[in-house]
Design a protein around this nucleic acid. Sequence first.
DNA 1: ACTGGCTCCTGAGGGC
DNA 2: TGCCCTCAGGAGCCAG
Length: 271
Amino acid sequence: MPELPEVETTRRALLATLQGRRILRLVVREPRLRQPIPARLSRQLAGTRIETLERRAKYLLLRTAAGSALIHLGMSGSLRTPAPASPPAPHDHYDLILDNGCCVRYRDPRRFGLLLWAGRHPERHPLLRSIGPEPFSDRFTGEYLHTISRTRSASVKSLLMNAHVVAGIGNIYANEALYRAAIHPHRPARRIGHARYTVLAAAVRAVLAEAIEAGGTTLRDFHFGAGNTGYFRIQLDVYDHAGDPCPRCKTPLRRLVIAQRASYFCPRCQH
DNA sequence: ACTGGCTCCTGAGGGC
DNA sequence: TGCCCTCAGGAGCCAG
């Protein structure tokens, strides 16, 4: 499941392939993603030059001279550069064909992803407009979390996973960051003080940075992965480890469902 | 203004 | 071995 580190790794892997190239055409085999791929998108992209590939939250922004396309990988999406002339596999929904013959191919079995046109000011697009600060930005601090949480009754884990509060933190890294910060996922957000939020903000950045770093080391597999999903994982301390001993204190880790999401934590370390 | 529940979809994995 | 059922998850949307 692509979280922010996987999206960032995809961006880095594809940047050199895409930057400065002209798009010959977009080939759509299956437009039915979470929203349909707009019929006019092929026309909007054809012939235009790619300026850069950026990331905002878990969205990729393909910036071209004509405007930006918005790409989301959903739950099971991946972008890869298949070997020349390799036929599309099942769930390969679209290809971006470049002027040097390169092809960037999107695969997404569950079709939760998106490919949309966002025009010349993608930051104003409804899907991007109200997203919170990036975890690596100066705005994302303990003070920010403390301030925004004063009036909220939701759990701290729900707060972390709320894209309007902070961009790009999914279930896996929310669990891992809370474990590192020794905060119980179910604790009401308003009942956490400034100092602990500072620890949490640092933990969020650390766990994401490590995962991006790990992604960098697996870039080759990620590009051309034959048969594998293309995703990677850092060593996760708690996620999907219910019953295993806590790495810190050996107490068996527990699983709890919070807001429909599996939550893993150490009942002794986290409070 | 928030919050939790629902929804899209398919593949993996457990149980029998 | 094989079938069936459940579950997983990103995030927009909706109702309360």
